[in-house]
Nucleic acid binder design. Structure first.
Lengths: 164, 164
DNA sequence: GAATTTACGTCAGCCTTGTTGACTTTCCAA
DNA sequence: TTGGAAAGTCAACAAGGCTGACGTAAATTC
């Protein structure tokens, strides 16, 4: 058995174990996105719209630049998505009162409905998985994911986790 | 505290906890792909090439239809990727001896080199994360991911996990 | 008050990677 | 020998990334 001076068993760090983790991420992410994707296909929307809707719901009144930082895409890319959502009446964009250059984004009632449908589906899968494995495994899951993030992303993640 | 008849604490199943898990998946997946993406940009390759290379490395001699089932894309899409890899001398495709309709795929030495570079980078991040959180968290991580997969994907995953 | 910077929007064009549909070639198996 | 599976190819298209350039309004700085 591979033991460190400290005495821990390091078998979970072998290339083989790491490969399994990599493949698990790959296959699980497919499951993670499968249900919302199914709902969105047929509508004119895709995964990009889902992400925008999710984070606007999460942080109502957020600005465009805020969203850009979270999503990690260009403003042109986000704008295309946002424009259709606004045109279709799912998202409301209003000029900032303190800084009129900013646009504050909110979901309309219609937007809330779609958000609900999408997140219900995604949460259902997550809930089933969580329930199947128990709270301790879930804690480990979250710890590993957080440790895998880029520092900048971890900052975004933790800001969302705590603040409104 | 929310307790079931069985007595377990169910606070880890609240919508809020599930949302955190969803966002953790989102941000972590970005980190997960960031390093290979960085290596591939500049080359003429992308994430699709990485995936093909990974699974050919993982199962040398695998057939095209096998790969299609694992990757979950259309043959036209895979073919485009595979063609460039073969043209560039990273992948070797040879007619099956027992069933000559099949093409068996192998990495060339050049392909092995790129695979190594990509997986080294990806494993380094995974290793750092694993090491930071310890074996028990890693076990939970893997359990949740496996539980999140579609049954068909879980089958693929487990086949890879065990068999060659 | 003028110049600069910031936030946002938009036009145009490009790339990767996914899709469908139609068609051919090869070749195994009933 | 014929049907169907496996593989490959061509064409066309869409989503959703990207860069570059440009415009405008508002805030900030000099």
């Amino acid at each position: 058995m591979a033991e460190t001076p400290g005495g821990e068993n390091l078998l979970f760090l072998t290339d083989e174990q790491l490969r399994k983790g990599i493949e698990a991420m790959f296959f699980a992410y497919r499951g993670f996105t499968a249900d919302p994707d199914r709902i969105l296909e047929g509508m004119d929307y895709g995964r990009a719209h889902h992400r925008a809707i999710h984070f606007i719901h999460r942080s109502p009144g957020t600005t465009v630049s805020n969203l850009l930082a979270i999503l990690g895409v260009t403003k042109q890319s986000l704008n295309r998505v946002l424009r259709t959502l606004i045109e279709d009446g799912l998202v409301r964009s209003e000029k900032g009162k303190v800084d009129a250059r900013e646009r504050h984004l909110h979901l309309t009632d219609k937007g809330q409905m779609l958000e609900r449908e999408l997140s219900d589906a995604q949460r259902a899968r997550m809930r089933a998985a969580y329930r199947a494995v128990g709270p301790q495994a879930v804690q480990g899951f979250r710890q590993v994911l957080e440790a895998m993030m880029d520092p900048e992303m971890r900052r975004q993640y933790n800001r969302l986790k705590e603040g409104g």
